[in-house]
Design a protein around this nucleic acid. Structure first.
Lengths: 222, 222
DNA sequence: CATTTAATTTGTGTATACAAGATATAAATT
DNA sequence: AATTTATATCTTGTATACACAAATTAAATG
């Protein structure tokens, strides 16, 4: 299927935001982006519009677009919702996971284990972590839910990166994964729900603390 | 604050969708809309883009936009998520509602009662019902959650309208509200959660059944 | 020298023009 | 007559042009 140029742009800009090339608060100049990508302003504007509605950037009328920038309060709120939705995925997955999906979950969990024990490639663990959670989302057998929770994950990505290097987080995360996998495979929906909720919300609190202690990230935006 | 024309258009088109003037599946012609509103295609396109990202319409590359049309399966999924988020609002509201907000909740609940007993104005009850749920959302003291759940409610609006005239639904709905209010005011978060979840999901199942039994709504789209 | 106001510049919002893909129509071949 | 192919028309996607608001800089006055 042939994409439109504006969609490609949206994805590229989104990637730049996710990987920190465009930090929160950064002003996005339409003309500049258009030149950089070798297109006119029109498709750039369409891309920005989409990112705005998706919540990744903010367009203020007549004053241009900036990469969305969430304060500690809002981050806590977003993680609170994320935790609820992830918990819901876990609860449903515990009831609905097919044998194939069970095997797939175990497989990615094992790969997480290897990455966690190696320790010296946090990027790899980060990526496998996404796959692990993705396996649970898919297991919910609720496509709409899956889309929503992936979407939220996207929006939080620029902030999660900050936490990559937090000391000792990876082994702790993996520990929690073990309990989650056990609960899901045992079909204990409510337990999986609780464990996942806690697993996610603890991250939210960490991020919020981090953000609150590093106000410079908000200051040096432009 | 001065809005841009494209935002006004977005709201107007959204309203037309919500009120069934543009039924699910209806093809949206950019030129036609532009003429109808007396503007060029540009702001119309921006509006459509936003509605697309928000999930109210679907834009298929090179083939134009249609009002989003959800099958029974997807409706069930959406209500499943809606139920979870509403339940979450209830759980949080039970813990966080301020005295003022408690009074406000009771007030709107009373107005619901009057409308339910009158019986002969389902539109009024529909509107008050929105306010009732809105009071609970606000009581969660989580703005992000509130935005998300309102957003979902918007997307489901064209379908909820179908159910307006379902026999005996209004008294039943009001009964459920009573239990929900009681739980929230008593600070029983988990109970409020459960009651709201059930309250919403039952609607989803009704809609899905209705949809499944009326495939004509899908057929006569164009 | 500071502060306010006028002028310039920069960048967004909308309109119009053009290009390219998709759909509909009509002709031709089997 | 039916199916396929070629042509025409229509709609979308992108580019360019213009209008207008906001930000910035320069000038003027206290």
């Amino acid at each position: 299927m042939k994409k439109r140029r504006s969609e490609e742009l949206r994805d590229e800009i989104e990637e730049m935001i996710a990987f920190g090339k465009l930090p929160p608060g950064k002003h996005l100049d339409e003309t500049e982006l258009a030149e950089r990508f070798g297109v006119s302003r029109t498709p750039v504007r369409e891309a920005l519009n989409q990112l705005d509605t998706a919540g990744l950037i903010e367009i203020r009328p007549r004053r241009g677009a900036v990469v969305a920038e969430f304060g500690p309060q809002r981050l806590v709120e977003m993680f609170e919702v994320m935790a609820e939705l992830e918990g819901m995925c876990g609860r449903l997955a515990a009831r609905r996971l097919s044998p194939d999906e069970q095997r797939a979950l175990l497989a990615v969990h094992d790969r997480c284990k290897a990455a966690a024990q190696d320790g010296d490639d946090p990027d790899l663990y980060y990526q496998l972590n996404d796959e692990f959670h993705g396996a649970i989302y898919a297991g919910s057998h609720n496509e709409f839910l899956t889309e929503q929770v992936w979407n939220l994950r996207r929006r939080l990505r620029p902030y999660r990166r900050l936490q990559l290097r937090a000391r000792g987080r990876i082994p702790k995360s993996f520990e929690e994964h073990e309990a989650i996998v056990a609960a899901i495979l045992a079909g204990e929906g409510e337990k999986a729900n609780e464990l996942l909720r806690a697993h996610v919300i603890v991250q939210g609190q960490r991020f919020a603390d981090l953000m609150a202690s590093l106000p410079l990230l908000h200051a040096n935006a432009d």
